[in-house]
Amino acid sequence: MHGLINRAIQCFYRDTYGAAAWADLVRRLDLDFTEFEPMLQYECSLTYRMIDAMAAALGKDRDVVLEDIGTFLITNPAAEAPRRLLRFGGYTFLDFLHSLDDLPDRARLAVEDLVLPVLELREHGLNQFSLRCSGDPPGMGHVLVGVLRAMADDYGALVFLEHAGTVQGAEVIEITLIEAAFAEGRTFELGMARAEGT
């Protein structure tokens, strides 16, 4: 598993539940390091164990933890990059939804060895979509639900999202776009690259 993913999960847990909670988890997992390096690769099994340990420590359902991770990815003010990079996908939330098919390719353009699950958006009506998510890690659909919910907020769109389980090896997320411009949303200026890159 790419270090960026593990690092994001680490930051989610540490920033949400505190450094002591993270230190405790490091002990539980018997890691011989305390921080994931975003640019290194790790065993996938470690990622799964980490998520299970978080769910156990928090007394939450695994799926709920995964969705929380997705939301954190977008809303964490300390790391604007994921939100900004996703906002490049489209000017409106609908554009953004249509850009999701390209997401794994976009990620690979940025970080060559970052492999994301294959995403496929299907349109079932004017405002009715489903997103199929296949590939590792399993449960990524729940992370995506969290990401989409936060991104809808970001665009000011009102959507209804539901993880509809796994169909033919792909996790399916049902998306209903109720109102594209429901609220103000957060502003997105293209030209923040330099100010934030430093």
Binding site: A81, R84, L85, F88, L109, A110, V111, L190, A193, G197
Partner: peptide, 18 residues
Amino acid sequence: MLYLVEAKSAAMEASRKL
């Protein structure tokens, strides 16, 4: 292109820190 500039800057920054 702007996406790439920003994504690459973020990736470079992570590599630089490593």
